[in-house]
Simulated scan of single mutants.
Amino acid sequence: MNEKTLPLTPMENKVIDLLKQGLIVKEIAHRLSISDRGVNFHKYNIVKKLRVSNIAQAINLLSEYGL
């Protein structure tokens, strides 16, 4: 898996990058000019696309691949 084969959209990549930095939903929403619900929607899609159980597992998986 690499960035080119990663099934995430550009916005999902932005969300996951901010989550890796330790930001909370409200902070991410503010930075990306979207709603809290929008951030949670992207988090849900990330988890679903990467076939993991939660966002922490998604972050760990991406870290394992150096992404």
Results as ranks from 00 to 15, higher is better:
residue 14 K to F: 11
residue 25 V to R: 09
residue 63 S to F: 01
residue 6 L to Q: 06
residue 42 H to A: 14
residue 66 G to D: 08
residue 58 A to Y: 02
residue 18 L to C: 05
residue 54 N to A: 06
residue 32 L to P: 00
residue 45 N to E: 15
residue 25 V to M: 06
residue 21 Q to H: 06
residue 7 P to A: 03
residue 47 V to N: 01
residue 26 K to N: 14
residue 7 P to M: 03
residue 43 K to F: 12
residue 50 L to N: 02
residue 61 L to C: 01
residue 1 M to C: 05
residue 12 E to A: 09
residue 38 G to V: 12
residue 53 S to V: 05
residue 13 N to H: 05
residue 17 D to K: 09
residue 25 V to L: 11
residue 46 I to T: 01
residue 26 K to I: 15
residue 51 R to S: 13
residue 57 Q to D: 12
residue 7 P to Q: 07
residue 19 L to T: 06
residue 55 I to F: 02
residue 5 T to G: 01
residue 10 P to K: 10
residue 30 H to T: 11
residue 30 H to C: 04
residue 55 I to Y: 03
residue 58 A to L: 08
residue 33 S to A: 12
residue 21 Q to W: 04
residue 47 V to R: 01
residue 44 Y to K: 14
residue 21 Q to S: 11
residue 33 S to P: 00
residue 34 I to F: 10
residue 44 Y to E: 14
residue 4 K to M: 14
residue 1 M to A: 14
residue 62 L to Y: 03
residue 37 R to Q: 13
residue 17 D to H: 04
residue 24 I to R: 12
residue 59 I to F: 01
residue 67 L to P: 00
residue 27 E to S: 08
residue 47 V to M: 06
residue 50 L to E: 03
residue 18 L to T: 01
residue 65 Y to L: 09
residue 34 I to T: 07
residue 44 Y to G: 00
residue 31 R to T: 10
residue 7 P to D: 05
residue 9 T to S: 11
residue 17 D to R: 03
residue 10 P to M: 12
residue 28 I to G: 02
residue 37 R to H: 10
residue 42 H to G: 02
residue 15 V to I: 15
residue 40 N to T: 13
residue 35 S to G: 08
residue 13 N to V: 08
residue 45 N to W: 10
residue 10 P to Y: 11
residue 36 D to T: 04
residue 48 K to I: 09
residue 21 Q to L: 14
residue 54 N to M: 09
residue 6 L to N: 02
residue 26 K to A: 15
residue 30 H to S: 13
residue 9 T to M: 08
residue 8 L to Y: 02
residue 41 F to P: 00
residue 22 G to F: 11
residue 51 R to T: 06
residue 23 L to Y: 15
residue 51 R to I: 05
residue 12 E to F: 05
residue 51 R to Q: 13
residue 43 K to G: 02
residue 47 V to C: 03
residue 30 H to W: 10
residue 23 L to E: 11
residue 37 R to G: 08
residue 14 K to M: 15
residue 1 M to W: 14
residue 41 F to D: 13
residue 42 H to S: 11
residue 39 V to P: 00
residue 52 V to P: 00
residue 63 S to P: 00
residue 48 K to G: 05
residue 27 E to L: 05
residue 65 Y to G: 02
residue 16 I to S: 04
residue 56 A to I: 07
residue 32 L to I: 13
residue 66 G to V: 04
residue 39 V to C: 02
residue 60 N to I: 03
residue 45 N to K: 10
residue 34 I to A: 07
residue 35 S to L: 12
residue 17 D to Y: 06
residue 43 K to L: 15
residue 54 N to K: 03
residue 5 T to L: 11
residue 66 G to Q: 04
residue 21 Q to M: 13
residue 19 L to S: 03
residue 63 S to W: 01
residue 50 L to R: 00
residue 47 V to L: 09
residue 63 S to M: 07
residue 3 E to G: 00
residue 18 L to A: 06
residue 12 E to K: 00
residue 6 L to F: 02
residue 39 V to Y: 07
residue 53 S to H: 09
residue 19 L to R: 09
residue 61 L to W: 01
residue 16 I to D: 07
residue 43 K to W: 10
residue 12 E to D: 04
residue 31 R to F: 13
residue 13 N to Q: 12
residue 29 A to T: 10
residue 2 N to R: 07
residue 39 V to T: 09
residue 65 Y to R: 07
